[in-house]
C-alpha cells in the first residue's frame, strides 16, 4: 500500500513537472540568449516538450484505465467503510471500520481464507512442477513438438465456464471418468465435488489441468533463450543429462518461475468463474468457498455491498503483497 501511495505521489510529481521545467529553462534563456533572432515563447517550447507531445498517446488510455482500476479501488475502499446493504444509495456520511471487525467474527471468513491459501499454495506449486516437466520434455528435438505444445496449452484458451462443464462430467459420482478409472483399482466411487474433504483437491486438479500448459509456455520461452553452447559445454564437462538440467539449466529458469508464480498466485486469489460454474452459483460446497466467491456472494447474492467491498479490499491487499515485490524487482533489474 505504501508503495502504491509512493507511486501515486511520483505521478503527481510528473504531472507537475511540465510547468516547472518550463520555468527553469525560461530563466536560462534570460541568462544566455542575448537578443538572438529566434524568439520562441515558453508556451511554444512547453508544447514541443516530449511529455506534452507524448501525452495524447498515453493519457487517454491512462485516464480510462486509471478511472476503472484505481478510482474504482478507492471507491471500493470508501464503500467498505459504509453500512451499505440492500437497495438504495450508500450513505457516505458515517464511515467506520465496522465491516473489518465483522470479518474477524465471521467463521465463514476464516474458512474462506484457509481455503484460499490451500488453493493458492497447492495450485501454484503443482502447476509450477507439472509445467516445468512438460517444458523439459518438449525442449528437445521432437517431431510434432509444436503440435504437442498446442494441445497442452489448449485448455488455457478455453473459458472457465466451459472447462467447468467438462470437469463436472469428469467428476460425476455415478458415471464420471474419474470414478470409473479408480473403480478399476477397486476404489470409490467418491463424491468428488460433494465431499468437503475432497472438493478443494478436485478443484485444484482441474485447475492444474487448465493452467499447466500456461506454465509450460513460460518455461519453454526461458529454455529457448538459453544458448545451445551451454548444453554443449555441460556435456563436454561430462555432466549427465539429469545433472546438466539440475545444475546448469534449471537455475536459469528462476526469472520465468517468478513471473509464472505471480500470475498463478494472482489467479488463485481471484478464481471465481470456475467455482461459480462448477457449483451453479455463488455457493460452492462447504470446503471449497474461497475469498473470491465469498466476496461476490456477499455483494451480489446477499446485497451486503459494504461487507463485500471490505472482503474485496482484503483480496486487493493480498494481491498487492505479491505484485509490489515483483514490480519492484522488475524495476531494479531494468525489466520494466
Amino acid at each position: 500500500m505504501k508503495r502504491f501511495l509512493l507511486l501515486l505521489r511520483s505521478i503527481r510529481r510528473t504531472q507537475g513537472e511540465g510547468p516547472e521545467s518550463e520555468r527553469t529553462s525560461g530563466e536560462r534563456r534570460v541568462m544566455t540568449d542575448g537578443g538572438t533572432s529566434e524568439k520562441r515563447s515558453t508556451f511554444q517550447r512547453w508544447l514541443d516538450s516530449d511529455i506534452v507531445q507524448s501525452a495524447p498517446f498515453w493519457l487517454p488510455p491512462f485516464l480510462l484505465m486509471g478511472f476503472f482500476v484505481y478510482a474504482a479501488i478507492g471507491w471500493n475502499f470508501l464503500l467498505s467503510l459504509t453500512e451499505y446493504s440492500g437497495f438504495g444509495d450508500p450513505d457516505y456520511s458515517n464511515l467506520g471500520l465496522q465491516n473489518y471487525w465483522a470479518m474477524l467474527d465471521d467463521p465463514g471468513m476464516w474458512a474462506a481464507t484457509r481455503n484460499t491459501f490451500v488453493l493458492l499454495v497447492g495450485f501454484t506449486v503443482v502447476c509450477l512442477i507439472v509445467g516445468l516437466l512438460l517444458a523439459l520434455l518438449l525442449d528437445r528435438e521432437i517431431r510434432f513438438s509444436r503440435s504437442f505444445r498446442t494441445i497442452y496449452l489448449l485448455p488455457f484458451a478455453l473459458s472457465f465456464i466451459v472447462t467447468a462443464q467438462f470437469w463436472r462430467w469428469m467428476y460425476n459420482v455415478n458415471n464420471g471418468i474419474i470414478n470409473q478409472f479408480i473403480g478399476v483399482f477397486g476404489l470409490g466411487p467418491y463424491s468428488w465435488l460433494g465431499s468437503p474433504k475432497l472438493v478443494l483437491g478436485a478443484v485444484i486438479f482441474a485447475l492444474v489441468w487448465q493452467f499447466s500448459g500456461y506454465t509450460m509456455i513460460i518455461y519453454l520461452a526461458a529454455l529457448r533463450s538459453i544458448p545451445n553452447d551451454q548444453y554443449e559445454a555441460a556435456r563436454a564437462d561430462g555432466a549427465s543429462t539429469v545433472r546438466m538440467y539440475w545444475r546448469v539449466i534449471i537455475p536459469q529458469l528462476r526469472p520465468a518461475m517468478v513471473s509464472a508464480t505471480v500470475t498463478l498466485v494472482l489467479f488463485a486469489l481471484k478464481a471465481f468463474d470456475f467455482l461459480y460454474a462448477t457449483f451453479d452459483g455463488y455457493r460452492p460446497r462447504r470446503g471449497a468457498d474461497i475469498l473470491a466467491t465469498k466476496m461476490v456472494r456477499e455483494s451480489f447474492g446477499r446485497s451486503e455491498w459494504a461487507y463485500g467491498s471490505s472482503i474485496a479490499l482484503m483480496l486487493f491487499v493480498l494481491s498487492l503483497g505479491v505484485i509490489t515485490p515483483y514490480l519492484y524487482n522488475q524495476y531494479k533489474r531494468g525489466n520494466l
Binding site: S25, R28, R29, T32, D33, T36, S37, E38, R40, R45, D48
Partner: peptide, 16 residues
C-alpha cells in the same frame, strides 16, 4: 544543459 548552439547565428537550443 547550458550554453548555446547556433546555426548561422540563430540559437537552436530549443528548436525541435
Amino acid at each position: 544543459s547550458d550554453g548555446d548552439i547556433r546555426l548561422d547565428d540563430r540559437v537552436i537550443n530549443d528548436v525541435p
